Simulated scan of single mutants.
Amino acid sequence: MTASVSDPVVRKFVAAVNAGDKDAFFADVLTEDATMSDDGSERDLAAWTEKEIFSPQANGRMEVVEASDDGRSLVVDYTNDTWGTMRTRWIFTVAGDRVSRFETGQAPS
């Protein structure tokens, strides 16, 4: 799954999500001032990731379907216990060895 992601920073992002490792996600994957958007709307990163990825009710997981842009753009079958599985796109901005921004949303059919 993550083997198809060539960018090591994005690979760490996917691994932390799939492991449910919120501590590593915030301490080792994201910059301190990281930002994000969902379907084009800016979101509070901590609140969004708690609700959509890390809470026991969410249990988010990413199965990478396609990677492009040197591994910084992904199409993912994203699954959580709230919404089920949906095809999503993820675009990452990397600063050094961390993600400084990600944008996610529904992938085109």
Rank of each mutant, 00 (worst) to 15 (best):
M62A: 09
V75R: 09
V99H: 04
Y78W: 10
F54N: 12
F92H: 14
D38K: 02
D33C: 07
A19E: 14
S41W: 04
Q57A: 13
D77N: 14
R11K: 14
K51M: 06
S55R: 05
Y78Q: 10
A24M: 06
D21H: 07
F25K: 13
V64K: 04
G60Q: 11
T35W: 02
E52C: 01
A15S: 15
S55W: 03
Y78R: 12
W83G: 13
I91Q: 11
D81S: 15
T2A: 12
V94C: 06
A15R: 09
A27G: 07
G96K: 11
V94N: 03
R98V: 00
G96D: 08
T79S: 15
W90R: 06
G71L: 01
A19T: 06
P8C: 05
A27E: 11
E50N: 11
V17G: 13
E50Y: 11
V76G: 12
T49W: 03
R11M: 00
V99Y: 01
S68P: 00
P56D: 10
T93R: 10
D28R: 09
M62R: 03
S55F: 03
T2V: 08
F92Y: 12
S73F: 07
F26E: 04
A46I: 04
T104A: 04
A16V: 01
S6E: 15
S100Y: 02
A27H: 05
R87V: 06
M86D: 11
P56S: 07
W48R: 09
V65E: 13
V94I: 13
A46S: 07
D70W: 00
D39I: 03
F92C: 10
R43I: 02
V64R: 09
R72Y: 02
A107M: 02
A67S: 12
Y78D: 06
F102I: 00
T93N: 13
E63W: 02
A46T: 14
L74P: 01
Q57R: 13
G20F: 03
E103H: 00
W83Y: 14
T82N: 11
V99M: 05
A58S: 13
M36D: 00
G40A: 06
E66Q: 15
V17E: 09
A47M: 05
T88M: 12
R43P: 00
S109M: 14
D39P: 07
D28H: 03
D69T: 08
S6I: 09
S68V: 14
V9E: 02
D28W: 00
Y78L: 05
V14P: 04
Q57K: 15
D81M: 14
A15I: 00
A95I: 02
M86C: 12
S4E: 14
T35D: 04
V5D: 12
T79A: 15
E50Q: 15
F92Q: 12
L30V: 08
T49A: 07
E52F: 02
Y78I: 01
I91L: 02
F25W: 12
W48T: 07
V17K: 07
A58N: 06
D81N: 15
D81I: 09
A67Y: 01
M62N: 07
E52T: 08
D69S: 14
L45N: 10
